[in-house]
């Protein structure tokens, strides 16, 4: 279950990470080890086991459609990298 160098670079690109050659090699080893460990599960016969999407035996956890108080603009912008009047301002998309 070894992961290729190209796959490491692809995943890094999706996560917007820039890796140098040494890092690519290190993560290739680490990711391969993780995949291998998880791959152990595939050795079991799980044809009768439904995939688990959540560990809790809980369903239909929802809230009623009743508004609560939102943050003020000042609160909302408190951690903003940059504020432009009543908007968040970010580098061009």
């Amino acid at each position: 279950m070894a992961i290729t160098k190209e796959e490491v670079l692809h995943v890094a690109r999706l996560a917007r990470l820039e890796l140098n050659d040494a890092e690519v090699e290190r993560f290739q080893g680490q990711l391969s080890a993780i995949l291998e460990a998880v791959g152990k599960v595939a050795e079991l016969d799980l044809s009768d086991v439904p995939p688990t999407s959540h560990p809790l035996e809980v369903s239909n956890a929802w809230g009623e459609d009743v508004p609560h108080t939102s943050l003020t603009q000042d609160e909302a912008f408190a951690n903003a990298p940059e504020r432009d009047d009543d908007h968040f301002r970010v580098p061009p998309a």
Partner: peptide, 26 residues
Amino acid sequence: TATKMFCRCRNGYGGEPNTQTCPVCL
């Protein structure tokens, strides 16, 4: 709906920008 999908901030037009936000939708 009166509120957003995953938080209870008001859903809908008309508010001043960034006045219908909370820790979930931010």
